[in-house]
């Protein structure tokens, strides 16, 4: 079994008071709780912190943890002989046990002891963040989910059970949406329901497309002469390239809307695609180009800053 130093996770001394432990936990929880934190790896960090606090806040579990001895985090260790006897008559196989499952099992068993006899116990629910690409949002996606779940036997002894799921996400999932896999979480015990798995969809950024809800935006760069003369351009959309007509005298900032060319919606229909016109200029114009622009400048009476002269 791998050792985890719960005291160093919370940043407290082994002799810390219950109050110190609570204070340290609360400070770290405010920093890393996935519901309120924007820190990278917040979820992982909070899991460690919560696991440490779960054991150290309970005097019985803390005493049991202290009796394990002191090792480096990650170091392989075995509890001292007879350590287990204070909780149970049987000794579990320690090799594949996670320290957190072990201490969680202690409270589970104590609960069952108090109530005298087996009571229904629901399986654990899971929330998993799933990052999908824009292409997957458009077409739907299949992927494998690896949820290694702890299961407890009738003595409350934990065992890691591998749980691989193949999951299909329907088309039209966008950022912030939630999906559910009913009954695919931890197994319920004594007739309790099986847990559910909740998927939180995160849409990965795309180099061209910007998504809001089911609408998709992209920049459409035009050369100055294309914007003035009008043109037909081949433009990428989430569903594949389309040819669109740009009318003559199209100003920068104009939005060309392509109805229904955004992302599909879960219950039919689709968002729109908006192409925002930009006037692009070459990094450096060639000699001939400069000449033509100079002729244009001389011939044109166009004043792009007429608005500056109004209201005077």
């Amino acid at each position: 079994m791998k050792y985890k130093d719960y005291y160093s996770v919370l940043g407290v001394d082994r002799k810390a008071s219950a109050d110190d432990i609570k204070r340290a936990y609360r400070k770290l929880a405010r920093k890393y709780h996935p519901d309120v934190s924007k820190e990278p790896n917040a979820e992982e960090k909070f899991k460690e912190v919560a696991e440490a606090y779960e054991t150290l806040k309970d005097p019985e579990k803390r005493a049991a943890f202290d009796q394990l001895g002191s090792f480096q985090t990650g170091q392989d260790f075995r509890p001292p002989p007879d350590w287990w006897k204070q909780f149970s008559d049987t000794q579990p196989e320690f090799e594949d046990i996670d320290l957190a499952d072990l201490f969680a099992g202690l409270s589970g068993r104590a609960g069952r002891r108090q109530r005298g006899g087996p009571i229904p116990f629901p399986g654990q629910d899971y929330e998993v963040a799933v990052q999908i690409t824009l292409d997957q949002a458009y077409h739907g996606a299949e992927f494998e989910l690896d949820l290694s779940l702890p299961e407890y036997d009738e003595m409350g002894l934990p065992k890691r059970v591998p749980n691989k799921l193949k999951v299909r996400i329907p088309r039209g999932a966008v950022d912030g949406q939630k999906l559910k896999l009913t009954g695919k979480g931890g197994k319920g015990m004594n007739g309790g329901r099986d847990g559910d798995v909740y998927l939180n969809i995160v849409l990965a950024p795309h180099p061209l497309f910007r998504v809001t809800g089911h609408d998709v935006y992209l920049d459409l760069p035009l050369a100055p002469w294309e914007a003035v003369l009008g043109t037909t351009v081949r433009m990428p959309t989430p569903g594949g390239a389309v040819d669109i007509k740009v009318k003559p005298n199209t100003a920068a900032g104009r939005q060309l809307r392509l109805g229904g060319r955004g992302l599909p919606k879960p219950h039919g229909g689709a968002g729109d695609l908006f192409a925002i016109v930009q006037i692009a200029v070459p990094d450096s114009a060639g000699e001939r180009e400069r000449e033509l622009y100079q002729q244009l400048a001389a011939a044109s009476s166009f004043n792009p800053r007429r608005s500056f002269e109004e209201d005077r």
Binding site: D125, L165, V167, L179, K180, L181, K184, D196
Partner: peptide
Amino acid sequence: MKVELTEAIWIEDSSEISIAELAEQSGL
């Protein structure tokens, strides 16, 4: 081992739930 395919469903597609079911599914 064959892994069967699980279809993810939209949360909003699930039917309305009672307060007892909400308690069970939320842990409150």
